[in-house]
C-alpha cells in the first residue's frame, strides 16, 4: 500500500558520524555480504570479473574534499536509504510494491509485486534505490530487517550489519522517534542533520557533522630567542637514579 501509514511513534534509522568516518567502505561491503543472502537476496554483480564491474549495493561510500589549500579537509560520506517520513519513492509506486512499514517506518520493496517501472528511483532524491537489472525488480536498504528483530541472533547482534562492522564507531542505529533514545540524544548533542530537508522528504537518518578541528588550547608560542648557557642549566641539576 503506497499510502504512507499515519506516522507511527517508532522511527528506526541510522545516525552516521562524519567526524570519525574514515571512508573504509567496511559498512558498504559488509552490507553487501549480509544482504546478498538476506531479505532482498541476491545483490547481483555484473561483469564481475570483466571490463565494467558493477552491481547492486545498498550502501555506497563517497569521498569529498571541502575547502582550499592548507585548510581543505577530506570528508567521507556513506550513502544509503534514509527511511524518509514522506517518501515519494513510496507514493509514486503504481503497484504498492514500495511501502513504508507502519510499525517502525522502514521503507521496503516487495519483490513479488514490483513491476520494475523504476519510477521510485526517479522519485528518490538520495539515490537509495537500486535496480536489480537481472531480476527486473527494485531493491534497497532494508535496514537489515532480517537482523534487527532476528531472534536467532544474540541480542547484541540485532543491529544492521553496517553498524556492527564499522571500525570507527561512526554508525549508530536506533529509534529516532523516541527523543530519549541514545541516537536521538547523540543527534541533539552533535547537531545531527537530515539531507536536503528543503525537498520535504523528512529523512529519518541523521548525519553528524565533522567537529571543528580540536585546536589544542595553544600555549603562547615560545619565542625563538637564542640559546644562552644551555649547558649550565643542567650542570648541577640534582638527579637521582
Amino acid at each position: 500500500m503506497t499510502a504512507i501509514p499515519s506516522p507511527g511513534a517508532k522511527k528506526l534509522g541510522l545516525v552516521i558520524d562524519l567526524d570519525t568516518c574514515v571512508g573504509c567502505h567496511a559498512c558498504a561491503v559488509n552490507c553487501k555480504e549480509w544482504n546478498t543472502s538476506g531479505h532482498s537476496a541476491p545483490l547481483p554483480d555484473f561483469d564481475a570479473y570483466q571490463a565494467k564491474p558493477q552491481g547492486v549495493w545498498f550502501n555506497r561510500v563517497h569521498s569529498y574534499e571541502a575547502g582550499e589549500g592548507r585548510d581543505s579537509r577530506t570528508v567521507y560520506f556513506p550513502r544509503s536509504c534514509l527511511h524518509c517520513e514522506e517518501p515519494a519513492c513510496v507514493t509514486v509506486c503504481p503497484t504498492g510494491a514500495s511501502y513504508k512499514r507502519a510499525e517502525d517506518g522502514i521503507v521496503l520493496v516487495n519483490a513479488d509485486t514490483c513491476i520494475g517501472c523504476k519510477l521510485c528511483s526517479w522519485a528518490c532524491p538520495y539515490g537509495a534505490r537500486e535496480f536489480d537489472e537481472d531480476a527486473g525488480v527494485m531493491k534497497k536498504c532494508t535496514l537489515c530487517i532480517d537482523r534487527i528483530y532476528n531472534t536467532n541472533l544474540p541480542e547484541q547482534d540485532r543491529v544492521p550489519a553496517c553498524v556492527s562492522t564499522c571500525p570507527a564507531q561512526a554508525r549508530h542505529f536506533g529509534d529516532l522517534g523516541d527523543p530519549d533514545s541514545a541516537v536521538s540524544r547523540l543527534v541533539a548533542e552533535r547537531g545531527g542533520y537530515g539531507l536536503m530537508p528543503e525537498l520535504g522528504y523528512k529523512p529519518v537518518n541523521r548525519y553528524l557533522p565533522p567537529r571543528a578541528r580540536a585546536h589544542h588550547a595553544t600555549p603562547v608560542e615560545t619565542p625563538a630567542e637564542p640559546i644562552t648557557n644551555s649547558f649550565l642549566r643542567w650542570i648541577d641539576r640534582a638527579l637521582s637514579r
Binding site: A28, S63, Y64, E65, R73, K118, W122, L195, P209, P210
Partner: peptide, 30 residues
C-alpha cells in the same frame, strides 16, 4: 555536492573519489 551532503559551510565541496569506479544503475539512469 555541498548541498547534497549538507556541508556547504566547510567551503566548496568537490568529489574526490566516487564510491565505485564504474557507473552503476543510478548514474546510467539519472
Amino acid at each position: 555536492p555541498g548541498d547534497a551532503i549538507g556541508l556547504t559551510e566547510l567551503g566548496t565541496v568537490r568529489m574526490l573519489d566516487p564510491p565505485n569506479t564504474e557507473d552503476n544503475y543510478l548514474m546510467r539512469e539519472m
